[in-house]
Amino acid sequence: MALYVYAITGQDHPLAVGDVTGVGADPSPVRALACGPLYAVVSDVSEEIRPKRRDLLIHQEVQERLMEGGPVLPLQFGYTAADEATVEQALRKDADGYLANLERLDGCVEYHVRAFQNEEELLRQILRETPETRELNDRIRAGDPDPQLPLTLGRAVAAQVRERQDALAAGLTDALVPYAREHDVRPATGDDLLNLSLLVSDDRREEFLSAQAGLVRQLGDGVEFRLSGPLPPYSFVR
């Protein structure tokens, strides 16, 4: 039977997931498959797993329970293997790498920080503080007939938006990274200006949270933070 694989842990992990029913239309109990010094946390599945709400929640519940008991290498949603032999072969093949990763992530959790800047407030700042854009805007409002003015203003404003948001993202990253053992900056999506993952050790979590809260107060209503965590260290599994 095919297996859905949630995570990899070490043999000394308490594995407090025995009462959890796994993913799928005909869910089976979550269990541990041992192979040498490692466990794969799995459940039997009989069909392709799609990202339905219940299954996503079960996947995350398993990860969070495992995280409470010690270091874990969480797999992204949807990973399946053909059978137990396939999982055991994968564990044996890279046992040293998995063990090194578990040691590296021991005592750490992931936090994810996204930031969004109020566009209207940013545009007002640019028109108020940048001589070039202020002059162009004043000429348009005064009725200057030059047809190139709106395009020139749009380009100037767009350049200022990129420059200011890049600078803000870099500043936020520089302020938070010192509290993390590792970090990962990814391209921001949508209207966000920051997409930052941080691996934070238990002994620095309060410092990190205090620093993040301080940034929120310092920047005020113009910047919206979305902090997720503590999370299993998805972004730092190598």
Rank of each mutant, 00 (worst) to 15 (best):
P150Q: 10
P150R: 12
L151M: 09
L153T: 03
G154S: 07
G154T: 05
R155C: 01
A156N: 02
A156F: 02
V157D: 00
A158N: 04
A159I: 00
A159K: 02
Q160G: 01
Q160W: 00
Q160H: 04
V161S: 00
R162E: 12
E163T: 10
R164A: 05
R164C: 05
R164L: 08
Q165R: 14
Q165H: 08
Q165A: 01
D166F: 03
A170L: 12
A170K: 13
G171Q: 14
G171W: 09
L172G: 00
L172E: 00
T173S: 15
A175V: 13
A175F: 12
P178T: 13
Y179W: 15
A180S: 13
A180G: 11
R181H: 09
R186G: 07
R186W: 04
P187R: 08
A188S: 15
A188I: 10
T189M: 06
G190T: 05
D191C: 00
D192Q: 08
L194A: 03
N195R: 08
S197V: 01
L198C: 12
L199W: 07
L199T: 10
V200M: 08
S201R: 15
S201E: 15
D202R: 14
D202I: 02
D203P: 03
D203C: 11
D203E: 15
R204W: 12
R205V: 15
